[in-house]
Amino acid sequence: MKKLLPVLLSGAALSLAALSAPATAGDRYGQRPPVVLSPDLSAPWVMQLGGQAAPRGGIVYRAKPQPQRARAVQQRSLFASPRQVTRVSAAAAPRVKPAPARQLDPKFLPQTVAYNGGEKPGTIIIDTNDRFLYFVLGDGQARRYGVGVGKEGHAWSGTERITRKAEWPDWRPPAEMIKRVREQEGRILPVHMKGGPENPLGARALYLGSTLYRIHGTNQPWTIGRAVSSGCIRMRNEDVTELYERAQIGAKVIVI
């Protein structure tokens, strides 16, 4: 027992010496660590210490680190103008084919004009060059409408009479027209299409003699004033409806 007492005393002395000795490089901390708080409430309150120095026993508020890419974008936006940021080069931008103009020239809207010709009231005169249809009223006046006419190679002239009238007519394109459109345009026309808003003949049709030509409406009113048809005379639906009420079966139609 007497032999163990010096050994215990010497061990206690060594422990006291270690507590009183200054911290060495091998210790984890050389001074009291600061408490680091994060402004992000989703993060833990106590953060692991970094390599920055802090006052003894102080509190360091560390901002939430931003990703490197987000900081770069934020810094660039401070100096770049909006035009520079959103600019797209002409080579990279997709090319958009301009839509066909769908404005109707006001001169093709219906109006009453002076007429000094020799045709009697009820006669229809179609000027394919100026794209106008005249319905003779009498008393030196005529009602004028804009029309679409036959395209190159399909224009015609002559005198016919109205042999039939139809409301919302069915469309049966002739076999020759079906073949021509398929070969030249690559479109397949139907053999028969029931009358309605999508029908190319529109709201009304006035059939001319025994020909395949008609004065009819259209589902493409922006083509009025142009040479676009296969020989028929097309009008706006509201205009052909008005003409339908005025013109009688047997009326003379002059195409010039």
Rank of each mutant, 00 (worst) to 15 (best):
K2V: 06
K2I: 04
L4G: 01
L5F: 15
L5H: 05
P6I: 00
P6V: 04
L8W: 11
G11M: 15
G11Y: 09
G11P: 04
G11I: 14
A12G: 14
A12R: 12
L14H: 03
L14M: 12
L16Q: 13
L16V: 14
A18D: 12
A18C: 12
A18P: 14
A21W: 14
T24F: 02
D27L: 01
P33H: 01
P34H: 01
V36S: 05
L37H: 06
P39C: 04
P39H: 00
D40I: 00
S42Q: 07
V46L: 12
V46W: 06
Q48A: 13
L49Q: 07
G51N: 09
G51R: 10
A54C: 13
R56W: 02
G58M: 00
Y61S: 13
A63C: 09
Q66A: 13
A72V: 05
V73C: 04
S77Y: 06
S77H: 04
F79K: 15
Q84W: 00
S89R: 08
A91Q: 14
A93S: 14
A93K: 14
V96I: 14
A99F: 13
P100H: 01
R102K: 13
R102L: 08
Q103M: 07
F108S: 00
P110S: 01
P110T: 01
Q111P: 02
Q111W: 06
T112V: 04
N116R: 14
E119M: 09
K120L: 00
T123K: 03
I124H: 11
I126C: 11
T128R: 07
D130W: 03
F132S: 07
L137K: 07
G138R: 06
D139W: 00
D139Y: 00
Q141E: 04
Q141T: 02
A142L: 01
V147N: 01
G148L: 05
V149Y: 12
G150A: 12
K151C: 09
E152L: 07
A155G: 14
A155R: 15
S157M: 04
T159E: 10
I162Q: 06
A166C: 03
A166W: 00
P169Q: 00
P169S: 00
W171N: 09
W171H: 05
W171D: 06
E176W: 06
E176K: 13
I178L: 15
V181C: 13
R182N: 09
R182G: 08
P190V: 02
M193W: 09
M193K: 10
K194I: 01
G195A: 03
G196P: 12
P197L: 04
E198K: 15
G202P: 11
L208I: 05
S210H: 10
T211M: 10
Y213K: 09
H216F: 08
T218I: 04
P221G: 01
T223F: 10
V228T: 11
S230N: 09
G231C: 03
C232N: 07
C232W: 03
M235C: 08
R236K: 13
V240C: 11
L243Q: 08
R246L: 15
I249T: 14
A251Y: 01
K252A: 05
V255E: 02
I256Q: 15
